[in-house]
Write a protein that binds this DNA or RNA. Structure first.
Length: 714
DNA sequence: TGAGGAACATAC
DNA sequence: GTATGTTCCTCA
């Protein structure tokens, strides 16, 4: 395979490659790592065109490169050490400070080099990303089309509204609910977008070279690089390209069929792989074989006019083609398991190079301007294949950032600043430190809540425009490494009467992203009451190709919020902020709180002082109880300390030390305290010493000064 | 639907 | 054997 003819690294003078727009502007932060990243970065920048989803395939081109992973520190051959060692993100920001991430609206591939040849087909999610009425985005997208190429996004997403129709119900737990099975839920985008390594050309050396490779999903080039899933390729995608279809189908239908250790078959499901007959098994492509197509239409029908009918047909063809060959060489067990996870198939169709110049005009991607397209899609296309319920938007959603095509937006594992220039994205209300995530086999456990009741809220400060924006939310890691999408958790869209915030799901490189409107009338503030957390089985994720993280004990997450602010220059400013860590496992939440450190071993004997306790398993509603017992064990007093909730953070409590209550004690006064979670969980008592401030010890008794006495109520 | 709890399964 | 993960039961 030819290697990528990207701009030389010299284009990125500030260490990590900085974003470069078509005009040569140096943009935002550099990607987190090198290696496969390199190509991705370059691709990303050099090709970053909202309207064009380039799909360079570093992996396929360089099979030897390490599979995408999470190790952001990993560098790869050929990549400057700096690129790999520096934290992603702040490298080359220009306008808004070092940390801002800008995207130019006009990035066309600088050298006009053709996209990297690659034997993969990927249908990337794009659907529903173009709905907006945000002219800002609109313009950007138009401008972003490669000059002369008029090339539409090379990838698209097809949402499957009702995955159940394609899955064996018997495989689902009775306890399951549609909403809980994120992968299969109405949030069809997840389904259609969620791709597994096996289906990801970039990680599938065995993929058929017959696929026309012209574009690459920059997203995939990043550490996680599993590829944006979704469906639909550009209208140019040759129906002959294909073969990914089967993969997708299999992964999709194979859900739960072969979970190695899953009790799915042992307990209730009683489903065997045989039962799940993938449409692709049929030698003959059939409408049924491409349910994903309809999937894409799901909630985005109203907005998905970006696709031309030809594109859709191409996608269908691709999907309906048996691509089993691509799975050859992949252990059935692993394959199925992994695929199982992502019922939805995300195919990325890579248009042939020649397509670049023949791609339909950008206008195709502007639904508002081409209502006829919608008609064609819904009626002529979707209806013919799948009965897809119309899913009108509930809100005049601004064009989703993803509508630009991920190539133009920073990858989810890029580190972005929370503020830049006049803008600041801030979490006004933090989520509770514990939220039990639900499995696909369970019903939803509801939305993440705030400690003091209510829900987390996020606000964009400094934005004075009247155009609404979209707030993106995904589940990120909470370990010591750089923030990145969490492999074992996905955000779960909550809907229902109790949810006041509308939202939409999108998939970016295997990560589900919830998109929430940020409206000027709400002061660009969003109350996030629509986000739950879905736990994916460790066994499923760990079998993913390229996955390096392990799920065991990896149960802490953060809510990551992003907003992309169009700039007058046409570029995009991206901000990001992550919440405090959230413990998602049931067991951890039940563990005893443990005080590891306290701010002072000795504290004033009188009240009014505060003490900081840090440890584990503290809850926002944890209580700190002070106890004093006489040497003979006699309980002298016990009282709950007042908490300074404003200063409390996860696993860090700030308490006000209660006033001294008993004068008949010896000095130094030994007092114990424990942290109590709920009714039963309490830490071991931990001692500290009161110093006789404002008092003195005489004859084994505390003698308080009049002032101290008054303060203590004595 | 949203939780809480716990039984059962698996990893270490 | 213990710790942790996953599924199921139950209830408000």
């Amino acid at each position: 395979m030819p290697s990528t003819s990207f701009p030389a690294p010299s284009k990125f003078p500030l260490g990590p490659p900085a974003a470069v727009c078509g005009s040569g502007e140096t943009l935002g932060p550099a990607p987190p790592s090198g290696g496969t990243m390199k190509s991705a970065e370059e691709e990303h920048y050099s090709y970053a065109s909202p309207g064009v989803r380039s799909t360079l395939l570093p992996s396929s081109a360089q099979p030897s490169l390490p599979a995408p992973g999470h190790d952001l520190q990993t560098s790869a051959p050929g990549v400057p050490a700096t690129a790999a060692s520096q934290p992603p993100g702040y490298g080359g920001a220009v306008d808004s400070g070092p940390s801002s991430y800008f995207l130019s609206s006009g990035h066309a591939r600088p050298n006009g080099a053709p996209a990297l040849e690659s034997p993969r087909i990927e249908i990337t999610s794009y659907m529903g990303l173009h709905h907006g009425n945000n002219q800002f985005f609109h313009d950007v997208e138009v401008d972003d089309v490669l000059p002369g190429s008029k090339r539409p996004p090379s990838t698209a997403t097809l949402n499957l509204p009702n995955l159940e129709a394609y899955r064996d119900p018997s495989c689902l737990s009775p306890a399951s609910s549609l909403s809980s099975r994120s992968c299969n839920s109405e949030a069809s985008s997840y389904e259609s977008n969620f791709s597994y390594p096996y289906a990801s050309p970039q990680t599938s050396p065995w993929q058929s070279p017959c696929v026309s490779p012209k574009t690459t999903d920059p997203e995939e080039g990043f550490p996680r690089g599993l590829g944006v899933c979704g469906l639909l390729g550009s209208p140019r995608h040759s129906p002959s390209t294909s073969p990914r279809t089967s993969v997708t189908e299999e992964s999709w239908l194979g859900t739960r069929t072969s979970r190695p250790s899953s009790p799915c078959n042992k307990r209730k499901y009683g489903l065997n792989g045989q039962q799940l007959t993938s449409p692709h098994h049929s030698p003959t492509p059939s409408p049924r074989g491409s349910p994903r197509v309809s999937v894409t239409d799901d909630t985005w029908l109203g907005n998905s006019t970006q696709y031309t009918s030809s594109a859709i047909v191409a996608a269908i063809n691709a999907l309906s083609t048996d691509g089993s060959l691509e799975l050859d060489g992949v252990p059935v067990k692993a394959r199925k398991t992994a695929l199982d996870h992502c019922p939805s198939v995300a195919l990325k169709v890579e248009p042939a190079g020649e397509d670049l110049g023949t791609t339909p005009p950008t206008a195709e991607f502007l639904p508002e301007e081409f209502p006829s397209f919608q008609h064609v899609r819904k009626g002529a296309f979707c209806d013919q294949y799948l009965s897809v319920p119309q899913h009108p938007y509930q809100w005049a959603r601004p064009r989703s950032p993803t509508a630009y095509g991920s190539p133009t937006l920073p990858a989810l594992d890029w580190q972005l600043p929370s503020r830049s220039g006049p803008y600041e994205l801030r979490i006004e209300v933090q989520p509770k430190p514990h939220h039990r995530a639900h499995y696909e086999t369970e019903g939803s456990r509801g939305a993440v809540k705030a400690s003091a009741g209510g829900h987390p809220s996020v606000q964009l400060h400094g934005y004075l425009e009247n155009e609404p924006l979209t707030l993106q939310l995904f589940i990120g890691t909470a370990d010591d490494r750089l923030l990145r999408p969490h492999a074992f958790y996905q955000v779960h869209r909550i809907t229902g009467k109790t949810v006041s915030t509308t939202s939409h799901e999108a998939i970016l490189s295997n990560t589900k992203v919830l998109e929430i409107p940020l409206l000027p009338e709400n002061n660009m503030r969003a109350i996030v009451d629509c986000a739950g957390i879905l736990k994916l089985r460790n066994s499923d994720i760990e079998l993913r190709k390229g996955e390096t993280d392990i799920g065991r004990k990896n149960t802490r997450v953060r809510l990551v919020f992003r907003v992309h602010i169009p700039q007058p220059s046409g570029r995009m400013l991206s901000l990001q902020v992550a919440s405090n860590p959230i413990e998602c496992s049931q067991r951890s939440a039940q563990e005893l709180p443990l005080v590891e450190k306290q701010s002072a071993a000795s504290c004033p004997v009188l009240g009014g002082k505060k003490m900081v306790l840090s440890g584990h398993n503290f809850l926002q509603d944890s209580k700190v109880i002070f106890v004093e017992k006489a040497p003979d064990g006699h309980h002298i007093w016990e009282m709950e300390a007042k908490m300074d909730r404003e200063l409390c953070q996860p696993n860090s409590l700030v308490v006000e030390i209660p006033p001294f209550r008993n004068q008949r004690i010896t000095s130094p006064v030994q007092v114990s305290f424990y942290v109590c979670n709920g009714k039963r969980k309490r830490s071991q008592c931990q001692r500290f010493t009161y110093l006789p401030a404002n008092g003195a010890v005489r004859n084994n008794r505390m003698v308080l000064s009049p002032k101290a006495r008054a303060r203590c109520g004595h």
